[in-house]
């Protein structure tokens, strides 16, 4: 417990698919309330790293710790399932393709997990859903099925669904990549709001402007390693590595 000081701690994360090594000995600490952006070209391993934090893509080597508890503990199958399900309740995740449940309304999408896992009554869960959907500006669509929502609206409901579990940490996996450009801002606005409330967030993104304006730290990953990291002012304005410079040149040019 000597190094309990870090809120999220990734130690020597390693992951391979057969001969292909997608994460090569990555270590990373995130403090409570920090907002970290992970950027990099596709195939750099950034999504894999994010999905290792809640063990959706288990690591082949290394450890992930959250708030003093190891996430990827080595336990017998049954015990491990129980442990990971409890851990995941504390980690919200938002996907590129929303993954809203199409057979449930916005309200039901939000209330399902709190009712099943936290024993909330229907009334309590409904109140919670209303609060969370209000927060993301979707209260007026509470009875809608996902098929009747736009991409941006779906993503906001997905964020509300994650927030309803009162997570300690939020993971965003390219949350705006699948959206039409005019719908990106409404989702970014919600994420900014969370930042102002000091939610701890790890964000995989390819939106450099957003990363620069919201995040405390930026990691640039390429080919399974962290090439460069630091505050956005340094990484974006004054990168020290050639690979970072090249990546930023392409992407900032593309953005403008």
């Amino acid at each position: 417990m000597s190094d309990k000081s870090h809120f999220v701690e990734i130690r020597h994360a390693q992951k391979s698919f057969g001969a292909l090594e997608v994460l090569k000995d990555i270590s990373l600490n995130v403090e409570r309330g920090q907002i970290v952006a992970i950027i990099g070209p596709s195939g750099s391993g950034k999504s894999t790293l994010l999905r290792a934090i809640n063990d959706l893509d288990p690591l082949t080597g290394g450890e992930v710790w959250l708030d003093g508890v190891q996430v990827n503990k080595n336990l017998p199958h049954r015990q491990y399932e129980k442990h990971i399900n409890e851990m995941r309740q504390d980690v919200g995740m938002v996907f590129q393709h929303f993954n809203l449940f199409p057979h449930l309304t916005a309200r039901e999408n939000v209330t399902m997990a709190p009712k099943m896992l936290k024993g909330l009554s229907s009334a309590e869960a409904d109140k919670l859903a209303e609060e969370q959907l209000e927060k993301v500006g979707m209260l007026d669509r509470i009875e809608y099925y996902p098929s009747r929502l736009s991409g941006g609206q779906k993503q906001r409901v997905a964020i509300a669904r994650a927030l309803a579990m009162k997570p300690k940490l939020m993971l965003f996996d390219e949350a705006t990549s699948a959206l039409d450009p005019e719908l990106v801002d409404e989702v970014n606005a919600v994420m900014k709001k969370l930042a102002e409330e000091h939610m701890t967030m790890i964000i995989v993104t390819h939106e450099m402007d957003f990363a620069a304006s919201v995040c405390d730290r930026v990691l640039f990953m390429d080919q399974g390693v962290v090439v460069e990291e630091g505050p956005p002012s340094v990484v974006f304005k004054n990168p020290s590595k050639d690979r970072t410079k090249e990546f930023l040149r392409k992407h900032l040019a593309g953005a403008n």
């Binding site: 399900n85 409890e86 919200g92 996907f95 993954n99 399902m112 997990a113 896992l117 994650a162």
Partner: peptide, 10 residues
């Protein structure tokens, strides 16, 4: 996956 990340069992 979305269910699992909310903490639901398999």
């Amino acid at each position: 996956e979305a269910g699992r990340t909310l903490g639901l069992s398999n």
